[in-house]
Amino acid sequence: MAFEPRIIGFLCNWCSYTGADLAGVSRIKSAPNVRILRTMCSGRVDPAFILKAFQLGADGVIVMGCHLGDCHYQEGNYKTIRRLPFLKRLVKDFGIDPRRLRLEWVSASEGDKFAKIVNEMTEEIRQLGPLKLTVHREIERAIAQP
């Protein structure tokens, strides 16, 4: 059987989740590989969640938020844009290709953009192949909280 990547998508409630909804309502076809997890704001996405997703077997993670300046909570996405580059460097140390982690801005009106990104990401992960993680314990330790 051909490899079907499993991708976790963290979508903010106001822009990206609505945008994904619009893609559905508009009957835009997109790859079914992204499994969507709704948060109120992309700023809520704790880096630990992303690591946990990889540890649980996700082949890729995509975080989507409002365009800069459009955040429903004024500046939550600025927090995200500061966190994600750090995390990309961190996942490299765990042997995860940073291309498996993506940050995108999708507004509520960009259903087509959502579908395009999902298709692109799925295709890219399919090229990269399944994620073979060997450092489960290290990740466990990294995300452990008191």
Partner: peptide, 10 residues
């Protein structure tokens, strides 16, 4: 509080 959760993540 509006419930965005940015502080929770931080």
């Amino acid at each position: 509080c509006k419930g965005c959760g940015t502080c929770v993540a931080a």
